[in-house]
Design a protein around this nucleic acid. Structure first.
Length: 571
DNA sequence: TTCCGTTGCGCG
DNA sequence: AAAGCGCGCAACGGAA
């Protein structure tokens, strides 16, 4: 079966794999490979890493095979390059290790090279934080040969990875996953480089409006100080630090109010004059500490927020972020995300992604037909007495393993009306409870249970065994859905990148930038005139992703798009 | 002083 | 009776 990811648009020839390694002196060694990863020519050495890559990228359809995009690509971006595709040895190695139940072993090129030769993988070299890049350009990465000989390791490991993928029972999907994960690494580096448009002045005004003017470093903003005083007064003048849960619990106890914790959820039901004040305080204090002026100082420069996305850091295949909390931007701050003059933001959000993914995964006919519509929950409402919200609760409970409140009854309805969908997640839960692993649709494996879990659950009588078994079941139940949704989103990203590139001017001028990706949501920053083509590109990429990941299915994956100048205006 | 586990809350 | 999934970050407070 031809693999779509290995085949260009219009049936053009598959890209040529070219293995490349930057050298400490700024030069590069590279070598053309055959489709099966074997050496096609002898290695060449080129004086300048980025110009060597640029020349080749211009003249050929290349898949760059390298140790890791997060090491190589930022330099190339700074040099003004954009690459179409790569094979990220480290990310693919992590996928393959996970598939073999070996999560946690070093997934670096050096680790893979050592395993290939039956040696112990070198422990990851201790590097200063965030300097994967530095490590790569160290003259001698531990465990790797120096100079052009590093290509031997790269070529051998790449060929081995291709062989492992080819030997998998679901090789086409695994190959797609490897390509999408690698494309994700390119997208992540580009997003970090380009940055999310961020108006520091708008952010500052917003903070000042809620907290009072910017205070000296280290002291409480006016509004928080006022609330803290009022809280102290509400506790009869006994000084209490509202940031300290322990002090608050004691202060409530002294007033004869027993609280298990100081969570907002708990405080909402506490009848004491301090409770509503604390709720206000907590909300504002959180904004101040997590996304206040200090955040603005560290993360926003030149009108851009430059987060670092970490591909492959989450077991489900979702991205993580490192510094700046890129994936936890509070809704109120979306006001500060404003397009440049003459540019616009296209915000695309995959509607009800996870239940749709479940529908496609389970191939539940009745469910899948409902998922052919725009509002899945509304479509399912009929099965739940016409109540859309009940349909939603039932679905979320099925996917998360919740069974509280009325969820139990709603699950029973779900099981009766959509037996295959319910059966799919329940089979995943059972697998987890039995200590087995599950996989996403494209073959990303969940981690095996820990040794501690195994020994705890080995005897049903030991305390906590039942709870641990059920927790593992909820994890695997959710994993199959969340990880498959992540597969879909990653493929969407991989399909969207080339479409956006093709909208750029001849010299790359006015190129639409992907500037944000959050699980099921993308933001593209583009010139005003390109807004509609970008909308079309996102929708087309979503449909392409659905087809590539799930094949023939009636399930649709609609993306809600909004063309706005301010992120706060989307939705 | 630094380190680390816990608490709590933001996002999906 | 309490409880669903996955993350990152900041502050606290005890331990080293």
């Amino acid at each position: 079966m031809p693999i779509a990811a290995a085949q260009g648009p219009n049936g053009s020839a598959a890209p040529v794999p070219v293995v490349v390694a930057p050298q400490p002196d700024g030069s590069a060694v590279m070598c053309d490979l055959a489709a099966d990863g074997t050496r096609l020519a002898s290695a060449v050495r080129l004086n300048d890493f980025s110009s060597a890559i640029a020349d080749r990228e211009r003249s050929d359809r290349v898949r760059w095979v390298w140790a890791a995009a997060d090491g190589c690509y930022p330099d190339l971006l700074r040099a003004g390059l954009r690459l179409a595709r790569c094979h990220d040895v480290a990310l693919v190695e992590a996928l393959l290790l996970g598939r073999d139940g070996r999560h946690g072993e070093p997934a670096t090129l050096a680790g893979a090279w050592a395993r290939l030769r039956g040696e112990r993988a070198p422990r990851r070299a201790a590097t200063p934080s965030g300097s994967a890049q530095q490590a790569l350009f160290e003259p001698t990465e531990p465990g790797l040969p120096e100079g052009a000989a590093v290509l031997d390791a790269l070529i051998a490991v790449y060929a081995d990875q291709l062989a492992k993928i080819g030997a998998d029972e679901a090789q086409a999907r695994l190959r797609l996953l490897a390509a999408a994960e690698s494309a994700g690494a390119l997208a992540a580096a580009e997003m970090c480089f380009d940055g999310l448009p961020w108006r520091a002045d708008v952010h500052d005004e917003l903070l000042a409006g809620l907290l009072g003017p910017r205070p000296p470093r280290g002291s409480r903003p006016r509004r928080l100080a006022e609330l803290a005083e009022q809280i102290t007064a509400a506790f009869g003048g006994r000084p209490v630090n509202p940031d300290s849960p322990a002090q608050l619990v004691r202060a409530f106890a002294a007033e004869g109010v027993s609280v298990p914790s100081t969570r907002s959820q708990v405080l909402r039901d506490v009848h004491h004059p301090a409770a509503p004040l604390l709720l206000q305080y907590k909300e504002l204090a959180r904004l101040h500490s997590a996304h206040g002026w200090a955040w603005l100082d560290s993360w926003v420069a030149d009108g851009r927020f430059h987060p670092e996305y970490v591909v492959g850091a989450v077991v489900s295949g979702r991205w993580a972020s490192n510094g700046g909390g890129a994936l936890q931007i509070p809704r109120v701050l979306r006001r500060a995300v404003v397009a440049d003059p003459g540019w616009t933001l296209v915000v695309g959000d995959a509607a009800q992604l996870e239940p749709r993914v479940l529908a496609a995964l389970a191939a539940d006919r009745a469910f899948a037909e409902a998922a052919a519509a725009g509002d899945l929950y509304a479509e399912l409402a009929g099965a739940f007495g016409g109540d859309r919200s009940k349909a939603k609760v039932a679905l979320l409970s099925a996917m998360y393993g919740g069974a509280g409140g009325e969820a139990g009854q709603l699950l029973a309805v779900l099981r009766r009306r959509f037996p295959d969908a319910a059966g799919y997640v329940e089979a995943a839960a059972r697998a987890g409870e039995e200590g087995r692993v599950v996989r996403s649709v494209l073959g990303r494996a969940c981690p095996q249970p820990s040794a501690a879990w195994r020994s705890l659950t080995a005897s049903a009588s030991s305390a906590g065994a039942g709870a641990s078994v059920r927790a593992r079941g909820r994890f695997t139940r959710n994993f199959v859905v969340q990880a498959s949704a992540a597969d879909w989103a990653l493929v969407l990203l991989a399909c969207l990148r080339p479409r956006l590139t093709s909208l750029a001017g001849p010299d790359g001028a006015g190129r639409p930038h992907l500037v944000f990706f959050q699980h099921d949501e993308v933001i593209v920053h583009c010139p005003d005139a390109l807004a509609q083509p970008v909308v079309a590109a996102i929708e087309a990429a979503a449909q392409e992703a659905g087809r590539l990941v799930f094949g023939a299915t009636p399930v649709r994956f609609p993306v809600t798009t909004a063309v706005v100048s301010c992120y706060g205006d989307a939705k």
